[in-house]
């Protein structure tokens, strides 16, 4: 049974195919209005995530399917101590496909090993969130017209940000990618990501603490939130937090066709004034998330039939 646990479970060709289907859905949504008629998606959210859950549910509804599930562990049998394996074995009897979010890393993998229907990882702790990465890739492809020959900047918390690690892994399989890492010393990209992903795939990268310095080179800028709780002392946080807030004046030297992305939710790391800038793509990302999930649900259901 094919599931999606890690973005690298999909080949580059499969990702390209999903992006092509998503683009076709955007062009002609009516064509897909009954693509999953009589099919049911179970959203098993062991921790709350309104945006991701609604995106999956909207995706299934727009494909003509139905949804069932729960949005927090307290309203599931996990609260009674049921294992993930038993939960998905039971849910496999009710649904045709499962989207699971769980606070424990690897829980969706356990689910995929035990379910008799496809499982989509909708986020497992700080580990993987492959549909966010698919969303990011679709956004870059739609806005830039390609996933090759791009200089992509990542700014903010590059140490703990799973969306950053996952997108870097996915982009490392395309050609001509350059990566620019902008973060305070305390939140630099972990060395294992640099070694196992960037260096292993010969991806050129630079590390800097200054966003303004590298801004003119960027084709895409992926912002993340610098979180107070990541710092050991308040002084460091206060010293650094404003360096990584994107404001209109910091975009003065940026390319005219730059795209600004963010996995959301944002707090203050992108000033609201930037929302009006035509280069802001973060709300388009949200919409793209629904379309790529539609493409993914269709693909996994199709493969489950075979």
């Amino acid at each position: 049974m094919r599931s999606l646990i890690n973005i690298l479970d999909l080949s580059v060709e499969e990702i390209d195919e999903l992006i092509a289907v998503a683009n076709d859905i955007i062009a002609d949504p009516d064509k897909y209005a009954e693509a999953c008629k009589r099919k049911k998606l179970a959203t098993l959210f062991f921790e709350p995530s309104t945006r991701t859950r609604l995106s999956f549910e909207a995706a299934m509804l727009e494909l003509g399917g139905s949804v069932l599930g729960f949005s927090e562990a307290t309203s599931s049998s996990a609260a009674k101590g049921e294992s993930v394996a038993d939960t998905v074995r039971a849910v496999s009897c009710y649904a045709d496909i499962i989207a699971m979010r769980h606070p424990k890393e690897g829980a969706p993998y356990v689910a995929a090993m035990n379910a008799t229907v496809p499982v989509i990882n909708a986020g497992d702790g700080g580990h993987n969130h492959p549909t966010q990465t698919l969303t990011d890739l679709l956004t870059i492809q739609r806005e830039k017209g390609t996933l090759n020959n791009l200089t992509v900047g990542f700014c903010g918390d590059l140490k703990f940000g799973r969306t950053v690690h996952s997108l870097i892994s996915a982009l490392s399989r395309y050609t001509g990618i350059k990566v620019v890492l902008v973060s305070p010393e305390e939140l630099k990209l972990p060395s294992y990501v640099k070694k196992d992903v960037l260096q292993q795939n010969n991806i050129p990268y630079v590390q800097t603490t200054s966003l303004e310095e590298v801004m003119p080179e960027l084709d895409a800028l992926y912002m993340t939130r610098v979180q107070r709780e990541r710092f050991f002392n308040e002084e460091d946080y206060l010293r650094l937090k404003d360096s990584y807030i994107l404001e209109p004046r910091k975009l003065e030297n940026a390319k005219k066709d730059l795209i600004i992305m963010h996995p959301l939710p944002r707090v203050n790391e992108i000033s609201v004034a930037v929302d009006k800038d035509p280069r802001a793509a973060y709300f388009k990302q949200v919409l793209n998330g629904k379309y790529i999930r539609m493409a993914l649900i269709m693909k996994l259901l199709e493969e489950a039939k075979a």
Binding site: S83, V84, H102, K104, E105, G106, A107, V110, G126
Partner: peptide
Amino acid sequence: NPRCITSTEQE
């Protein structure tokens, strides 16, 4: 890893 699923599911 205390965040791993094996930390809560002993089986």
